[in-house]
Design a protein around this nucleic acid. Structure first.
Lengths: 337, 337
DNA sequence: CTGTTAGCGCGTTCAG
DNA sequence: CTGAACGCGCTAACAG
């Protein structure tokens, strides 16, 4: 049976060391304000008593908790883990702690989480938020906010600008002779989705290609797999997917119908997180999830330090990474198995 | 430019409603102790002032924060996201909030995180901890702890018992005619790894098979891919991998060497999280990451309610799920490309 | 350099 | 049913 020790307080340490409470406090936060020997004596006493500063009490008094919240729509999506890792590393450098929240693509859950986090964190990073602009603006009045892949004027944001990469993807397909293509889209509330969709539209128009849009409920492997029938019905010979996960699902769906990629059909993902993990290796639009995570946190920390919200809009560029899922359009249309 | 509103306190609400501070407090925590009309009046005042209870102050006073921490070694490993989701859902049912921490497989980082979380959470779930028994025991004296996939007597734990499933895997390979097999292992500090390794050893011995153990630095796609040379040098015709991620890496490594799975080589994963996502679809040992997440949280909540740590050991069973990466052993040995 | 004195915002006795 | 008073553990002026 495990015994639990109960919180030893600052005053007990003060008594044990024969000093005032404030000195103990200083020994931990401003050792340079005490004589070295006093610090030493206090630390020794604290050590033997097993004193550990009470984070909650400190936060109540200073208003600083040393935590920052990071909320993502779906940890299971391979786009986020690297971002999260990078965020954590960056936060760590300034001795901040990341509280991670997962909304399961659910705006209500996201709203709830933000409310729950506010008050325990000094600031919040919202990645690929599914909330309305109004809700986000409302939250921004409560605490410092940084957005990832969401473009709201007046709120600091860091964006992966897919347009260049997506444009290259369309060019790539056009050069391979594809005339009819499809875009398997992502969540309606996703900024990235809107952005990618219009980039494709622009590219297709420019090259006189026929474009169909296939909706999906959420960016998942399963959704991609189930979108395949709809894709095939459009008569397209190539598809661009909202993200790599969806693309991977499409890959499987095609294989199940004995359609060989890239011989019979070409496919391009976005985010480039599955890279060579799929078979065949997926052609995809690069991203910078690591940089984005790092930059967002660094921005937030700057804001926390300066107490001053500038209207920053940090956009990162993208490009196409060609691998093995794209090839010449089939010469006489798709051979359905 | 976004303006930030500053914390409206309980006393402001009290003034506005013409009551004492304590009444406002009660209106939120024990409405049944006030007259309905008073409650109504207070809530109205709070609403218009935009009052929101200060979580930190409340926690300081009550010792209850309504948070529980969940620490995992690697969010990027597909084993964890479903577990995390389930944990979050279960916590939500009791109106608790999950703080997620990621240790990047680093014991020092894990130790740091636990220290950082303790004091802001009421209890902690450590999933696949890489800490030593001593450290875990030490932490357990500080706050309620529940372990996932770590078997320490005296500390509540929920375990996925792979032995049955792994045993079936070995039987399966034996029946297919494989005589020499290899185990590509996981982290040294992993309880699951130790357990799986001994299950394989027992099975191989029982069927008179030759077994080689290949170490890896961490359970990742990359590690699996890099382990392939070592695997091939053992002369094995089949391999069991510590987890699906490693197995997927091995799959790629084999493909790169033009070794066709399952014709030339058989492979089995563990955790069954990549299921049909790989190509060919991976034969794997089932798991219950969802149940494990749910159960661990539910256990912790029980402990928090009863203030009483029982020595619970909850073990879940596993079985083999056969898909397309296992087949008869090649009749005249492996044809190296 | 160190001790003293106020709060931080809220929950909770304990009288009325 | 309500209000006044105290304390949670710590930091931040302000003296000395």
């Amino acid at each position: 049976m495990i015994k639990r020790t109960k919180g030893v307080t600052i005053s007990q340490v003060a008594d044990a060391a024969g000093v005032a409470r404030s000195s103990v406090s200083r020994a931990f936060t401003r050792p340079d304000m005490l004589s070295p020997e006093t610090v030493e004596r206090i630390l020794r006493a604290a050590e033997t008593l097993g004193y550990v500063p009470n984070h909650t009490a400190r936060a109540l008094s200073t208003g600083r908790h040393g935590n920052i919240g990071l909320i993502v729509p779906d940890i299971a999506n391979p786009f986020f883990p690297p971002l999260i890792q990078a965020a954590q590393t960056e936060a760590d450098r300034s001795d901040f702690c990341i509280f991670l929240g997962n909304t399961a693509e659910n705006p209500k859950q996201e709203d709830k989480l933000v409310g729950r986090f506010a008050g325990q964190v000094e600031g919040l990073v919202l990645a690929s938020s599914r909330l309305s602009d109004e809700r986000i603006r409302a939250h921004a009045t409560q605490l410092p906010l940084v957005l990832i892949n969401r473009d709201i004027e007046g709120i600091p944001r860091v964006l992966i600008d897919s347009s260049a990469g997506v444009r290259q993807a369309v060019e790539h397909l056009a050069n391979l002779g594809h005339r009819k293509i499809a875009y398997v889209s992502g969540p309606a509330a996703s900024w990235s989705n809107k952005q990618r969709r219009s980039a494709i539209r622009a590219g297709a128009t420019a090259r006189g290609m026929e474009l169909s849009i296939i909706p999906t409920p959420s960016p998942t492997y399963q959704a991609g797999r189930e979108a395949v029938d709809a894709v095939l019905q459009t008569g397209a010979s190539a598809v661009v997917a909202f993200d790599d996960l969806t693309a991977q699902g499409i890959l499987t769906g095609l294989a199940e119908r004995h359609i060989v990629v890239p011989r019979d059909f070409s496919i391009i993902g976005c985010d480039d997180v599955l890279g060579a993990v799929t078979f065949p290796a997926l052609t995809s639009v690069s991203n910078h999830s690591v940089d984005v995570g790092r930059i967002a946190i660094s921005m937030l920390l700057d804001i926390l330090r300066s107490r001053n919200v500038a209207d920053v809009r940090y956009a990162l560029d993208t490009k196409l990474v060609v691998r093995d899922t794209t090839a010449d359009a089939p010469s006489q249309g798709l051979q359905l198995g």
